[in-house]
């Protein structure tokens, strides 16, 4: 579910079900032409679709970090700490920046990027078995 779909009152009881936060990182530098920026966002939207549509009842998508690639890693880490304080147990980063990997992003549970999981994309747009499997394993270990 998107962050905008929750009201204050409903969030308290829904909190215990939604323990995973999806943080998109677009990694724009600002030097892109308008259509290139659009293309990057579209790329990221497909990646987020792999996570959002099958796990709609447990994942909350937070507003994306639009600008800043690898050099913004520590800023993204601070955001991830913030998200954990908000009560989320797992944080998944969907990033269109290949350089952002596990060393740079310390606090994140799973990083999903187009290149890493492009090969296993299911023949239907919103399906990526490898990503789903990763997330399931993440939830099973965490339990």
């Amino acid at each position: 579910m998107k962050f905008s779909e929750f009201e204050a009152e409903t969030w308290d009881e829904m909190k215990k079900f939604f323990d995973t936060c999806l943080l998109p990182v677009t990694g724009l530098t600002g030097s892109e032409a308008p259509h290139e920026a659009a293309e990057r966002l579209e790329l990221l939207r497909d990646v987020m679709d792999w996570i959002e549509s099958p796990f709609q009842g447990r994942v909350v998508t937070y507003p994306a970090v639009q600008y800043g690639g690898a050099e913004a890693a520590d800023q993204i880490n601070r955001i991830i700490q913030g998200v954990r304080q908000a009560g989320f147990i797992y944080v998944i980063v969907a990033s269109a920046v290949e350089e952002l990997n596990e060393e740079l992003l310390s606090g994140v549970n799973l990083i999903v990027t187009p290149q890493r999981y492009a090969k296993s994309a299911g023949q239907h747009k919103s399906q990526n078995p490898a990503v789903q499997e990763q997330i399931l394993r993440l939830w099973q270990e965490g339990k």
Partner: peptide
């Protein structure tokens, strides 16, 4: 809560639909 259930996707619930979220 709207997650996508899978058939036979969980070992301890054979021959059943299982929801990965909760």
């Amino acid at each position: 809560l709207g997650c996508t259930v899978g058939w036979n996707s969980n070992s301890n619930f054979p021959d059943q639909y299982h929801c990965p979220c909760h």
